[in-house]
Amino acid sequence: MGSTKRYAEMVSFGAYLPEKKVTTNSFASPSELPRSLDFVRLTGILAHHEVSEEQGSFELAIEAAKKAISRAQIELDSIDLVLNASVSKMNHELSQHLSPSYASLIAENLGINNAQSFDVSNACAGMVTALMIAESRIKSGQANYALIVSGEHITPIIDEAKRRNLYLNPRAIPSLTVGDGAAAYILGPTEQEGRIKFSEPFTLAQHNLLCIGQACKNHRGPRMRTKARELQNSVMINLGTFLQRSMNKMGVKWEQIDHTYAHPTTPKAVKKGGKIATEALGEIKFLHNESVETANTASTTHGVLLEISLENKYLTADETVLLISFGSGVAIVAIHFNLPEGVENWS
């Protein structure tokens, strides 16, 4: 690109949901929950997807990555950075991958041999954190094309929650809001400035104990314990100011954002957040709140929602997208980007 300035842009994205769909009422009916909770009414989640017997986080990630690479129409050799951001890294036998990076194994499986690869871990905000790193690498010329990928096999925490008696463990109830899924993004270089922008990233570490995910101590598989109300409040009380600061920092006009996606802990929570955002900045052009049948797929949620929008033919090249990301810890960060050329024709 000679002496011209170099920036990064979104080249493609893709998401994958396993075929098996499980309805919320099949495992969380009012008769099974404390105080006869109507979980569907409380959360707005009707169903989620679950892996098949042979699938784990890795297999999900590979499916999403293949889709994103095929849509990007680039050679595998041109990808020189692979970042994995999954929280779960769990195989079908519920063993957790530790080392080397999951990204290395994903790159190897895909035939990407010359890329630097490592894992970024920031709970549900992991993918947006990884996108920040990738954007910086491309802008500085250290990378050309970056694959950011995540596969989340997290539904075993539903079984754990139920097994541990929800009447005695109210902090396990939020474990019922998750689903399996995968997402991938390809970033690449451009001479055009401003096609990707990031908010200031925040970690509100005073809330770092509100959601803990780890291995069960006396049973195979993972568990999650969440102080759901406190966690939601920690985000909601900061959301309006965060968005106002983000618009200033990114130089973006709220009313000109075509598509807005927030991390869907539940569709009900997204609705509540949308109300706060509207009060702070005005009407939202299009708030995508379509996780009713996918639930919370952790780090992959934005990719999964983008894929649903694509299937619904909501997306057009060059339109602008805002992804607002929240993660345990509590991380809050947003990315604004222009949709890639040809997005309408992706299959």
Binding site: S99, S117, D119, S121, G126, F202, T203, L204, A205, I332
Partner: peptide, 22 residues
């Protein structure tokens, strides 16, 4: 470790891993 205000300073935290190369 405070809520976000219009001029509050920020700190961001995350982990990375790649075996011993971390």
């Amino acid at each position: 470790c405070t809520n976000i205000s219009f001029d509050s300073p920020t700190c961001f935290s995350f982990d990375v891993t790649d075996g011993s190369c971390s």
